[in-house]
């Protein structure tokens, strides 16, 4: 696959802090890439570097094979949907969408047709004469999307596209975005702090921390084979133990990790029991419960117990026996 964007050894500092630290990343044609990380990890800065809203201190950015380092945002074939949507409050929905097209010298019937097409693409064709403050949050988001897509960019950049939506709307919008991307066949780069959002939508996820990319991989690979403990911690619940203290000790050093759903817990010991302990706490999650078990060696183990296993639910203070296959354990760098 060819890369549509190539970020080559890019660094960006703001005063004493380094927002993006020597990042190299290839974004492939037609892929849905998520930049995932906690706030302040540099993911938004990286997106703004691609858009040209920031210029790198060092390194280079190629878009479609052309070196775009130093090129101002208005000359780049990418468009960005801002977290606040940044709709022009003094313009109607249709004028907002037309703004970018007018900059390309499109006018008259061609302009009207392109605006109509873009608004139809997000099912807002009836709201063209409204002002942004007369729209709901979800409608505003779609106007912002239409405004970007009307320009037919090579790459669409989305900065926390779901942040301003409520949870119910979020899931629907996720599906809509994925369908849109599949239909248009353009590259999406999404910045998000929500790992479940990234996993649900993206073809690949780049996990960022302190300005660096820790790992770039498809969601399943990130979950099942995280590159290190920091990535593992980011994706779902996980038990991370110092190798020396871990039961079954498959590795002499480093960190040993095991997902809570891979551990089996029972009230009776078996021949394959790895360790025993006492239930310290139970967190009921609906389809499952997370049990916190304190082992006889003093280790805390998170165990995911599905609600439909038939047995009566575990309660704190119960004596339990834990087992898991050796293959479930991962050895990780810190």
């Amino acid at each position: 696959m060819t890369s549509v964007i190539r970020i080559a050894a890019v660094s960006k500092r703001f005063g004493p802090s380094t927002a993006v630290d020597d990042v190299t990343l290839d974004i492939r044609e037609n892929e849905f890439l998520a930049l995932l990380g906690a706030s302040g990890c540099g993911k938004t800065t990286l997106l703004r570097l691609i858009a040209g809203l920031e210029q790198p201190d060092s390194g280079a950015i190629f878009i479609g094979g052309d070196n775009m380092t130093g090129t101002p945002p208005y000359a780049r074939p990418v468009n960005m949907m801002f977290q606040s949507y940044a709709l022009f409050p003094h313009m109607t929905v249709a004028d907002n969408v037309a703004f970018g097209l007018k900059q390309d010298g499109i006018s008259g019937a061609a302009l009207t047709a392109r605006v109509k097409e873009a608004l139809e693409g997000v099912e807002l064709e009836t709201l063209g004469t409204r002002k942004p403050d007369q729209l709901s949050g979800g409608q505003r988001q779609r106007v912002a999307l239409a405004r970007c897509l009307a320009k037919r960019p090579k790459v669409l950049l989305l900065d926390e596209p779901m942040a301003a939506l409520d949870k119910h709307l979020r899931e629907r919008t996720q599906l809509e975005l994925m369908a849109l991307r599949a239909r248009l066949g353009i590259t999406f780069v999404v910045v998000t702090h929500d790992q479940s959002e990234a996993m649900a939508m993206a073809d690949r996820v780049a996990v960022m921390e302190e300005g660096r990319i820790l790992q770039v991989a498809p969601p399943r690979e990130l979950y099942e084979r995280p590159a290190n403990a920091r990535v593992a911690r980011f994706f779902g619940d996980i038990n991370l133990w110092d190798a020396a203290a871990a039961p079954r000790r498959p590795h002499p050093a480093g960190i040993v990790a095991i997902r809570p759903e891979r551990i089996h817990m029972s009230r009776t010991p078996g021949s394959d029991t790895v360790c025993e302990g006492t239930v310290a706490d139970v967190a009921y999650l609906g389809t499952a419960s997370t049990c916190f078990v304190t082992t006889t060696t003093g280790l805390t183990v998170r165990v995911l117990v599905r609600s439909d296993e038939g047995a009566p639910p575990f309660t704190p203070g119960e004596r339990v026996y834990l087992t898991w296959p050796a293959s479930a354990m991962m050895a990780l760098d810190p």
Partner: peptide, 22 residues
């Protein structure tokens, strides 16, 4: 909101057109 001018630039507006339009 500075984001409005950034959006204008992102949509292809040179600085003076962003000024006149936004």
């Amino acid at each position: 909101d500075p984001a409005l001018l950034e959006a204008a630039a992102d949509l292809g507006a040179k600085p003076w057109r962003a000024f006149l339009g936004v």
